[in-house]
Amino acid sequence: MSITGLQVILILNKVAEVLEKNKLYLSELDAAIGDGDHGINMNKGFNAVVTKLKYDDGLDIGVILKKTGMALVSNVGGAAGPLYGTAFMKAAAAINGKTDIDVKDYIKILEAALGGVMMRGKAQRGEKTMIDAIAPAIVAMKEAEDAGKKPLEVLKASKDAAMQGVEYTKTIIATKGRASYLGERSIGHQDAGATSSYLILNTVYEEVKNINESKV
């Protein structure tokens, strides 16, 4: 099962819709331990992505992801702009020139994105960031792939693991960003960045599932 460039654009448009629906929720999560603007910023950024991709021909998925990253860097405020922007630009480099992608490519995309986030944010797992959703998602995907699971089952494993990662962020102390100023008081609050990462991974799963079902 593979996804074309035009389908990638449709998925990114759907991500924009999901983030718009969740912008207040994400900002409320962020307000508890951060600046309180994560949802508004992500909404603004992905609206810019939709505009940037409006006339893209879908022939190079690397170009699509690079345009996405550039739009996010230019339009998302706070730490999320450079982090998500770098994630998409590193992902773009990993699959440059490809006209369609499969599950193996998706794992490469997420690995490159994670590497970009860790480099840019100088962070690792267990520090109450978006990494706590993305890293376990990759591990779960690889395990599902190695076990011979079908592509949709591999994608489901990624979003389920990301959700568990979001839950995990409630139990740990924030050591990065503004939330780190709260120290132990950050325990009990879930990280907004991990939550937006989960929403993106879940949207990818749901949309690929819809694409797959429409072929049957």
Rank of each mutant, 00 (worst) to 15 (best):
M1K: 03
L6D: 09
L10D: 14
L12S: 11
N13E: 15
E17A: 05
E17M: 04
N22K: 11
L24G: 07
L29Y: 00
D35N: 00
G36F: 03
D37N: 03
G39D: 14
N41T: 05
N41C: 07
M42Q: 06
M42K: 01
N43V: 11
D57K: 08
I61P: 01
K66F: 08
T68S: 05
S74C: 10
G77P: 00
G78R: 01
A79Q: 03
G81F: 04
P82Q: 13
L83W: 02
T86P: 01
A87P: 07
K90A: 12
A91H: 03
A92L: 06
G97E: 15
G97V: 03
D105H: 13
D105A: 15
K108A: 15
E111P: 02
A113G: 14
L114V: 14
G115M: 08
A123D: 03
E127D: 11
T129Y: 04
M130I: 14
A133V: 09
A133C: 07
A135C: 06
P136Q: 10
A137N: 01
V139E: 13
A140N: 05
M141T: 11
E143A: 06
D146P: 00
G148P: 12
K150T: 11
P151E: 12
L152Q: 07
A157W: 06
A157I: 02
A162H: 03
A162V: 01
Q164H: 01
G165Q: 05
V166T: 10
K170P: 05
I172D: 11
K176A: 03
G177D: 12
R178G: 12
Y181C: 03
G188T: 02
Q190L: 12
D191L: 05
D191T: 07
G193H: 08
A194D: 15
L201M: 15
Y205E: 13
E207G: 10
S214W: 02
V216K: 04
V216M: 10
